[in-house]
């Protein structure tokens, strides 16, 4: 028999540690005590559910969703599946994304980079996975940008994403990078991930099959959320 028994523990050696001095902001914002571990309970095994009724028709089209006119930059499609650690699709889960414009500039009052705003680019979008865990959005490829950390640090082109899964235990925010970008391997934030294999799992792959001729290149990117624990137990025979 198989019994569903909470979520598998998060592999903390796979995720970035809290304190990563080369990413300077982490120094004053990282807890010093070890987190208190316990098995998930109903409070973590449940979470908010969002219906398709929250979505507008252009929510997953960042090229047009700010003004209706096209944003400037290389047009891309990002698609993939949200699955869990045992490979099951995660249907009906909300995926939110945000990013800089094609020049590497965010639409934010605290943003000081000299690259200009694009009047037709807001910088956020969202979608809900279908019954097979599939998601897709259109956007322009974001530009790399310099940021205050070391004297000359740059972020590789990236798209931030937030995923809910089916429970608060699965809640995750991370970033998508692009295949072939040499800046990935020079970034102190990317470098907080302990392994090369972990970093590579955040790199979207160019997919010419699903690109749209004379319109947009496609990138494939799967998102993996924590899985449910399945414990095998034997039915005890009488008399044993």
């Amino acid at each position: 028999m198989t019994k569903i028994n909470g979520y598998t523990a998060r592999d903390r050696a796979w995720h970035p540690p809290a304190l990563t001095p080369l990413y300077k902001t982490s120094v004053a914002r990282s807890p010093r005590f070890a987190p208190l571990g316990f098995a998930t309970s109903l409070s973590e095994e449940t979470g908010p559910v969002f219906g398709h009724d929250i979505l507008g028709p252009r929510d997953n089209d960042l090229i047009h969703n700010f003004t209706g006119e096209s944003a400037i930059g290389p047009r891309i499609i990002v698609q993939g599946r949200v699955i869990d650690e045992v490979g099951r699709p995660m249907p009906h889960t909300l995926v939110e994304v945000w990013q800089a414009n094609a020049g590497g500039r965010y639409r934010h009052k605290k943003e000081g980079y000299l690259a200009p705003l694009d009047p037709n680019f807001g910088g956020c979008g969202r979608c809900i996975t279908d019954e097979n865990g599939f998601y897709e959005f259109r956007t322009v490829k974001p530009g790399p940008y310099p940021w205050p950390n070391g004297a000359d640090d740059w972020r590789p082109a990236h798209i931030h994403f937030s995923v809910f899964g089916h429970s608060f235990a699965q809640r995750l925010i991370s970033q998508l990078y692009f295949e072939g970008d040499p800046m990935i391997w020079q970034c102190p934030i990317v470098g907080t991930i302990p392994t090369r294999e972990g970093i590579e799992s955040l790199v979207a792959k160019l997919d010419r099959q699903n690109s749209v001729p004379m319109d947009a290149l496609c990138y494939q990117f799967d998102i993996v959320l924590r899985g449910r624990r399945q414990t095998m137990f034997e039915n005890r025979m009488e008399g044993l």
Binding site: H15, E85, L172, I173, S174, I189, I193, I199, L225
Partner: peptide, 15 residues
């Protein structure tokens, strides 16, 4: 387990 959870990255300054 057949897949590793996507590694987390900071939400950054513009979450």
């Amino acid at each position: 387990k057949r897949f590793n959870e996507s590694p987390s990255q900071t939400a950054g300054p513009y979450v």
